[in-house]
């Protein structure tokens, strides 16, 4: 069965919400949004997902679709997004511009904060999200520009960097989820919460991942291949994303199986 790299990544990403139970699942950007929908459809029907504006929809709403055609099951204005996220009952998947070995991320600026080379969004809710609830991450371009040596240019979300905390210890409230990239799946299960490769996409070697990362990675000794999307997962993606926006998210929409 053929599948695209984007579909492989969505299937891997969907697993992030599989065991979360009845919380708010937020996938920011098309691939995470479809992935949250797949998780809700197949693995965690209690997951609450929104229309990206201010309603919870009964069925997951994919990117580029109007909520007008969907049943609304709840109200979630921004104020409620914040009270929910502060309580910890949310799991988001986000796409930072940079991440470093501590899991610290940046979406604010490249270069100097006062006079940046590139001004991006601003820190948005990244500091609070990561402080209050679990976050997973997606990168469609696994390079040394994304996974940077040293620290990210502006630390928007906290990571496992003891020197940044008042008492020199990583607080016990901090946890970070998985990282899904175009090459592999990683977590923070290495020594001292180091970033660790836990599966390689078909045809990718650990050396290739390491060569495209600005810092040393930990790894599982026997690295499995990232599981191919199942027929049920591909069917769920087709239903959630009928406009096939997932095909436009990675340049040339490559196959999930290299060759």
């Amino acid at each position: 069965m053929s599948y695209s790299l984007a579909e492989l990544m969505i299937a891997a990403a969907a697993q992030c919400w599989a065991d979360d139970g009845e919380i708010m699942g937020t996938g920011i950007g098309p691939l995470p949004r479809i992935a949250a929908g797949v998780a809700k459809s197949l693995y965690n029907p209690d997951l609450m997902t929104t229309d990206g504006e201010c309603f919870y929809t009964t069925e997951p709403l994919g990117p580029g679709l109007s909520s007008v055609d969907f049943e609304i099951e709840g109200w979630v204005p921004y104020q409620r997004v914040f009270t929910t996220l502060w309580s910890g009952k949310r799991h988001a998947m986000v796409a930072p511009v940079q991440m470093d070995r501590f899991g610290q991320t940046n979406i604010s600026v490249i270069g100097d904060h006062k006079k940046p080379k590139s001004a991006m969004l601003g820190a948005r809710g990244f500091p609070g999200n990561t402080t209050c609830h679990l976050n997973s991450f997606i990168f469609t371009n696994h390079t040394k520009r994304a996974f940077v040596a040293g620290e990210v240019d502006y630390v928007c979300s906290p990571g496992f960097n003891p020197s940044r905390y008042p008492d020199g210890k990583v607080p016990n409230w901090l946890d970070l989820g998985r990282i899904i990239t175009n090459l592999c799946v990683m977590d923070f299960g290495g020594p001292d919460r180091a970033m660790r490769v836990i599966s390689l996409h078909p045809g990718v070697t650990f050396e290739e991942v390491q060569d495209n990362t600005g810092f040393e990675l930990a790894r599982l000794e026997n690295l499995p291949v990232t599981p191919a999307p199942t027929e049920a997962e591909l069917a769920a993606m087709a239903k959630i994303d009928p406009k096939n926006i997932r095909a436009k998210m990675i340049k040339d929409n490559p196959s999930g199986i290299r060759g």
Partner: peptide, 9 residues
């Protein structure tokens, strides 16, 4: 708040 700890903000 805890928010901001560990960041450049």
């Amino acid at each position: 708040t805890r928010i901001g700890l560990g960041t450049d903000l």
